[in-house]
Design a protein around this nucleic acid. Structure first.
Lengths: 244, 244, 244, 244
DNA sequence: TATGAATGAGAATTCATTCAT
DNA sequence: GATGAATGAATTCTCATTCAT
């Protein structure tokens, strides 16, 4: 609005103004500020849920002004969606790495099952899932998008993994897709619904998870394991025994 | 309280007394009106979730005045809780009847599994569960109460059923509690989370459920079934073949 | 609506109906019920003030139905006015009797002053006055009417009394009207405002009132008493001394 | 706090810094807006009383939005209390200044009595007192607080003043506290209750007050004045006569 | 005539969003 | 570009009054 022509050499305000101007990203483009907002939003949304979280709370928590938030996110819903997107990324990041190594089948399943079960039932992730579920009435497709890009992708990786094991002759599975679901469910047996309904107020212990996953993997392999698997496992047993 | 036996044909006081007795139900006591309110509330809460549902919406949907709602329910939360309580009753009513009949084990498991899976994943029940989960931030213990009086009780019945089968020598189970969870999860394999996150927008088909439950029961029996079970099943097979 | 033809000789409902019908006053005419309503209203209005008192409270307290109240009183305000009218009657009833007896002047003033002071500062009367004052924004003229028919009438009686004393040569007063006010104020010195603003939460004690009234009467007689009064008083002193 | 002396003619940073320094006052900190709200509130509360005044009315009258009011005052009660506090300050400000000058006693009492009587019975102050009294049912201690910080403090100043006069040998008073109340009441004789009950709809005239106060002071001095006072007053009379 | 369930306008308060600074 | 004070629509809940029974 006001065009100020100044001689930058002599202007005593130079430094100050420069600092403000230099390298300032375009509106809504500064990734640091964006993170700052999302971090504040996370704390508030996760604690209070979508509706009960107020933009003022987020403002305070994020340490930015309300106006700024509205530069980065069109409204509360968009902010929430962005947060969930990020959260999803964090949750499922690395969760399936284990499946890439072609290790001993049983052990891989157990290890992966534990990671999966622990992540999905961790306080933070449960809270996030609850918030997504609660908000999906308001923001249609939000839950679907979350599932598709999170659990669904994971599921696909499990399918791939199982197919590889089938290829190796270790498993014999009629409906691989279903088997993948079965495996996941067995690893979470009793836990997911208890956590999501807040019947359990604390995440399951390591021991609980160990017990559940081990039992689930047994069941799974009893159902789908081949002769070959049995042999391999006995070899390994021997190997392990030999080691000890 | 007072049982009055009257010959309604001849009693000229009939109308007067009748008026006093039947009359209008006491404030907040008319079950018809109560139902009317709850029905309206159900439609609104289920559609919008707890927070987004406004008492005005419910007023409109229920066709009663705002004041009347507040005669029947102290506030929005109590109305919601009453609705959820009712819903829970409806959902889990009769769901476990199948387990009371000591029928052929595999068939019972299959039948029960189908009912369970169908109920839990029906559009209405999923919506209700979503609403409960979403409201738990606001109304602590609401989710826990729902789980405890619903799924938890059902789980206990499954445990009892499995114990009976163990008694009969049909199953051999190390951790019955876990096994009960496993069974339930297998019947819902892949379905529950897909539904609750609205990834699936429609309830699974009968065929899908059949396939999943059958596969789950197979897995379960492969893991926990005894020799004796196998024998019994083959007898039954023969019986069934004889029939056809 | 329904015309019921009955043979009153043989009708077993006769007594019951008769009891209901016999001597029933016209709508809104039964003085007993009216009292019952006003009594309930008094308790509620005095305790909560005009606005905070709800018709439901009054209904409960009075033990009559809401409809009935509206038969006797057109609305909340009218009920309140009727109550105040009655209350006023009770408060000022007999308060000025003392002034009718032509007794010893000083003693009469002291006795009357005590009664006046005690009544006006009693918890109930203060509460009533507060309620009237608070409601006068809502109901114009209500306070004026209360004052006119209560304190004002009392004031007139004091004026009459003082005039009689002047006649008897006991007082010499320039402005009798003002003197009457002065007397009243002196008897309440410091009390009225303290009570009405709830700075004092309890009514003054008998001793306090004695002290204040005695001091006020002294002041009053020093200002307006004649030689003749002094003589009469000394006579009386002698009489009293003789008695003892 | 920090006094910055700058030559605004030449400083190119002027606009920027100015904007930062003056800027907009912090939320709920702008005294102008606060006054605006209180002024609107005063009009509404005084006219309608606490309960009958709606926040919407105040919003309209003050010309600010509802939200803004709630930034400055937590709720209706706090707004009302702030208003009363301010009003109290205004009312009693300077009222007792007269007592600080050690002037001729009778004249000082008359002058002070007039100011007191005029203030307390002015339309605005009566309205304020009525509002406080009416609200005390809702906000306990509000009336007490008003009395304590207003009339009570004034009373204390009168006591101090009387004690000084006693010291000077001009008055002889048994119970100074009571005497102070008596003096105040005499100055308001007949007025306060008439005004507070709205029996009088207009404030008393100057002449009325003159008459009442003069009479009251006479009475007071007849009761408590010493020989010495009489002498001084006659001296003064002479002085005054000499002047004329 | 008496009843009290039902009504619905209106209360206080909150909070996502805007826009002047 | 950033700020945060101001906005006012929308929320939950109350209660004087009505009117079918």
């Amino acid at each position: 609005m006001v065009e100020i022509v100044r001689n930058s050499e002599t202007d005593p305000c130079e430094d100050l103004l420069d600092g403000l101007r230099r390298g300032r990203p375009a509106a809504g483009q500064d990734p640091v500020k964006r993170s700052q907002i999302i971090d504040g939003a996370r704390r508030v949304f996760i604690e209070k849920g979508f509706e009960a979280a107020s933009m003022n709370d987020i403002t305070r928590e994020a340490g930015v002004s309300k106006g700024t938030i509205y530069v980065y996110f069109a409204n509360k819903e968009e902010l929430f969606e962005a947060l969930i997107e990020e959260e999803r990324g964090t949750i499922f990041k690395n969760m399936y790495d284990m499946l890439d190594r072609a290790d001993d089948l049983r052990q891989t399943l157990v290890k992966f099952g534990k990671v999966l079960s622990m992540k999905i039932t961790s306080a933070r992730v449960i809270q996030a899932q609850r918030t997504v579920i609660g908000a999906s009435d308001r923001i249609p497709d939000m839950g679907a998008r979350f599932y598709e890009r999170g659990p669904k992708r994971g599921h696909d990786k499990v399918v791939t993994f199982l197919n590889a094991a089938i290829e190796r002759g270790l498993l014999e599975i009629d409906d691989v897709d279903l088997a993948a679901y079965q495996f996941t469910e067995l690893c979470l047996a009793g836990l997911f619904r208890q956590c999501i309904f807040a019947y359990r107020t604390k995440a399951p212990t390591q021991d609980e998870i160990d017990h559940i996953v081990r039992s689930g993997v047994n069941m799974f392999l009893k159902a789908y394991g081949t002769e070959r698997l049995a042999e391999e496992e006995s070899h390994e047993m021997i190997a392990i025994e030999a080691k000890s």
